[in-house]
Design a protein around this nucleic acid. Structure first.
Lengths: 220, 220
DNA sequence: ATATCGTATTTTGTATGCAAAATAAAGTAA
DNA sequence: TTACTTTATTTTGCATACAAAATACGATAT
């Protein structure tokens, strides 16, 4: 008997994943109306699994249902971002506090390694690589909390903010500030100081909020 | 022309609401397998909207999908509760801080009124009424934050914890402690002291966590 | 009796069909 | 032209039908 059974994901799950990708990448821009038949053709599935996927994404908040008029990719407004970021600040802070208590030395060393990579990307002005390593650090710390519900909650919120793609408009000053905060973060993590790491992470997300609201382009 | 158009909710939304109610009330206990045809008959709808509703509740986390084997009402484990409550603590704390900044006097007075009702329910040992007024106070404070995303996030998490229905096992001591914390809460709110209210709310949920984990009955 | 295999039944997964609502289009009156 | 009807077309909402997987059942062999 084989204990690692292969189960191919149900169609509606595959479709949901693919839609999520299309929305995340911007191929399906906010406000775009989702035509069922059209999507069925491009994906090669029938309407049933597609509709089930759409319902899922709607409860996730990525899509907005308009009764009898189908669904549109939901628009992330300035208000939404203003609401979400303080929540992210609290949750990332909590994640950091727990991570400082729970992460072992090898995991901390791993974060340090990526942190150093991130710093060198910063110095070389490699923006995309910087953002990727940055994202990874936050992810590792959050996961280091050992609280999967927390990870899921943060991811769900961050997905919405990310779609607004403000990251590009970072100024030299805000970038430098973010990097210096990251230096403090890694120090607090290596010192395994829960409250310090929590405070820095809260501050860090607040900085992000300021940056974003300073350069937001209204899209609604 | 009539600006307040009446739109009856789509079937899958109605079905989802009803399922949520059944799960919340315990009529559909954790672990129960959802038989589609059976549910279709009792609700008088076809499988399509039912399945759409099931997909929604699955992404909400109330239901668990088992590929090719349908869905079961998801089981809330001790681990789940242990993960969720610290998150609720952070979020309720945040809500309280924002509420202390944003709520006007009339809304604060409204909370005070319900608080006094709650106290009298406590003194008269009216448990159900106590819990209802208690819930209402937390809801009003959270809503007082003016952050709808925060309200939604807290509700979604609290729905899962609530289903485990531990509330009944409250001891005299923990009940007294909860009430005294509520006295502090209302004082901080009336003083419009954001950080004090935040701290008390965080503490309050921590107390709740201790109470729950002290009296939890394992169900998995 | 227990285990194993094969068949029947149930249940889920996906596709399709029909009805109702919304949108687009065309025509008519001012 | 512009506004308003009326009609045609598209698109969504819901129900049903068919296929595939899982479960239940029973027979046979040990």
């Amino acid at each position: 008997m084989n204990s690692s059974v292969i189960v191919r994901a149900p169609l509606h799950v595959q479709v949901a994943e693919r839609l999520r990708l299309l929305i995340d990448s911007g191929e399906l821009a906010p406000g775009t109306r989702l035509n069922e038949i059209e999507l069925c053709n491009t994906m090669g599935v029938s309407r049933t699994p597609l509709r089930e996927a759409i319902r899922s994404l709607a409860t996730e908040g990525l899509i907005e249902l308009q009764p009898n008029r189908g669904a549109i990719v939901s628009v992330v407004s300035q208000e939404d971002v203003t609401e979400i970021l303080p929540i992210m600040a609290s949750l990332e802070g909590l994640g950091g506090r727990l991570a400082a208590m729970h992460m072992d030395q090898s995991k901390i060393a791993q974060v340090r390694k990526i942190h150093d990579q991130m710093i060198s990307h910063y110095k070389n002005n490699e923006v995309a690589e910087y953002f990727e390593t940055n994202r990874l650090i936050h992810e590792l710390i959050t996961e280091g909390s050992g609280n999967q519900t927390l990870v899921d909650t943060i991811n769900s919120l961050s997905a919405k903010v990310r779609r607004a793609r403000f990251t590009a408009q970072m100024t030299k000053e805000s970038w430098a500030k973010a990097v210096s905060e990251h230096e403090e973060m890694i120090a607090a993590l290596e010192a395994q100081d829960p409250h310090r790491l929590e405070a820095i992470l809260v501050q860090h997300v607040e900085t992000k909020r300021a940056t974003i609201l300073g350069s937001i382009e209204q899209n609604q």
